[in-house]
């Protein structure tokens, strides 16, 4: 079943095929766990996020809607949102600067020929586009995505006008989205 598509595996999970859940786990657990660990910096909490997420896929597979894109990025987005929610609950009283510190330069380019998720063409394009971003753009997207900071918080921390942060976050995300279609040209600044 290791060649089966994600969509087919999710359909089998819907009909209570546990072997399909195992294949999805083997395919995505490392990406999910690594992302949660990068956000939370706590192996126990990363395990908790990974466990909750895969059990949710098992219990409520209908929550994934194929019309809203492929399964992989949906799962990773859910992992990111769960990890950020947990991070926000844990750091509500702590200094924001701690979150800033741990998220600086948190991303890196990956090249593991054995990992099907990393070898996914769309994923590789997005990572390539991230690597090609100016450091000013990369910084804001890392703070927003992995640090869970709002654009207002980023502006405060970097001592930058909110409008500049918004423009940078939008430009960075649009370049990553454009890279999905193989489009290397940055989008026109729509401001």
């Amino acid at each position: 079943m290791s060649e089966t598509s994600d969509a087919e595996l999710v359909a089998r999970v819907r009909s209570r095929d546990q072997a399909a859940l195992e294949v999805l786990y083997d395919r995505y657990a490392r990406s999910v766990y690594s992302l949660a660990l990068s956000i939370l910096h706590d192996p126990g909490a990363a395990e908790e996020v990974t466990q909750e997420l895969f059990l949710q896929v098992w219990q409520y597979p209908h929550l994934y809607d194929a019309a809203r894109g492929p399964f992989g990025p949906w799962l990773l987005r859910s992992a990111r949102n769960r990890a950020i929610d947990l991070l926000r609950r844990r750091t509500r009283e702590r200094q924001l600067s701690w979150r800033l510190e741990v998220t600086a330069h948190a991303t890196s380019d990956q090249n593991d020929p054995d990992d099907a998720v990393l070898q996914n063409e769309a994923a590789a394009r997005v990572r390539q586009a991230l690597a090609e971003l100016d450091s000013s753009l990369r910084q804001v997207i890392e703070l927003a995505y992995l640090g869970g900071l709002t654009q207002r918080e980023i502006a405060q921390r970097l001592g930058m006008p909110l409008g500049t942060v918004k423009t940078r976050v939008r430009t960075a995300l649009q370049r990553l989205a454009a890279a999905l279609a193989g489009d290397r040209e940055p989008w026109a600044d729509t401001r």
Partner: peptide
Amino acid sequence: EEALGWLGTAV
């Protein structure tokens, strides 16, 4: 959203 999802593989 798809770009945001795949961005998660850059850690």
